[in-house]
């Protein structure tokens, strides 16, 4: 689009998908609130909401992909998508920043503070150690997760997946479809492997280390941070899988592949979060 100015910008026709999505989130919100309070209707509403959401995502993204294939998106639309993905990832960064902030606060301020002399009357046996193992809220003893077992392997897996997705990108830009397909397939595989390993790690933590959400400041930050990261890996893997399927159907070319790049950006974001997790949750 360089050189000539694009005079028209694509504005979609009216669409009911947003309304369907709003109904989905209403069911999810209400269902979740009822379900966690043990109201019978809750679970059903949750499942309904999730199903409507999946239906909406298929329909909406389907529309977008059809519009893309019909050649409705040009340079300016592509620019919009890129800006939007960048800002979306920024919002995700801030979401994780909140939990990292909490981790640092707990480790640097609240736990040491509770070990101070002034709190000895309240909690005489409290020891300001990390992982925290004393305190009236920690009723069951647990062990911390070691960094150099499964988590280290998972780091390698995720870093390698960053390489494979880049190899796929090179393939796409150079028109080597085989390299693209294998690179992307490999990335999806590594993402899945990461999730399986994390499932294994959680099983190990729950059954052998007795580490739960309720294991005080260590357990809560461990599960909250790794759990939300895991959900993002899951989402990233699904996105990469969809892009892979589209590659196998012959979508994208060297100039026109925003969906691929968005997935790759998202994947790198998930990767960077993991590195921070590895250092601050597992290692230090």
């Amino acid at each position: 689009m360089e050189g000539t100015r694009q005079t028209h910008y694509f504005v979609p026709d009216p669409s009911y998908w947003p309304l369907v999505g709003a109904i989905a989130l209403f069911c999810l919100g209400l269902g979740a609130a009822l379900a966690i309070n043990g109201v019978a209707l809750g679970g059903g509403l949750l499942v309904t909401g999730a199903s409507i959401l999946v239906y909406m995502l298929f329909g909406w993204f389907g529309d977008v992909i059809r519009e893309s294939l019909a050649g409705r998106y040009h340079g300016k639309e592509d620019h919009s998508f890129r800006w939007a993905m960048g800002w979306f990832i920024f919002s995700e960064v801030m979401f994780f920043a909140a939990f990292f902030g909490v981790l640092f606060y707990v480790r640097v301020i609240s736990v040491p503070e509770l070990g101070n002399f002034s709190h000895k009357l309240l909690y005489p046996d409290f020891e300001a150690a990390w992982p925290l193992s004393t305190g009236p809220g920690i009723t069951a003893p647990y062990e911390a997760m070691s960094a150099w077992g499964l988590p280290a392997i998972n780091t390698l897996i995720l870093l390698s997946s960053g390489v494979t997705v880049t190899v796929a990108h090179w393939g796409l830009v150079k028109g080597k479809r085989g390299q693209l397909a294998w690179g992307l397939g490999g990335t999806v595989l590594l993402g899945t492997l990461f999730l399986v390993m994390q499932g294994w790690e959680y099983a190990h933590a729950l059954h052998e280390l007795n580490l739960t959400f309720a294991s005080g400041a260590y357990g809560m930050t461990f599960y909250m941070l790794t759990g939300f990261h895991g959900l993002h890996v899951l989402l990233g893997t699904v996105i990469l899988f969809v892009v892979w399927m589209r590659v196998l159907k012959g979508h994208f070319d060297a100039e026109h592949h925003f969906a691929f790049e968005a997935a790759a950006w998202y994947w790198h974001f998930v990767d960077v979060v993991w590195l921070l997790l590895f250092v601050f949750v597992y290692w230090l």
Binding site: V106, L132, G137, F213, G219, M220
Partner: peptide, 9 residues
């Protein structure tokens, strides 16, 4: 969890 509860740190 004990994010806002001193009993768990």
């Amino acid at each position: 969890t004990h994010f806002f509860n001193a009993a768990g740190g």
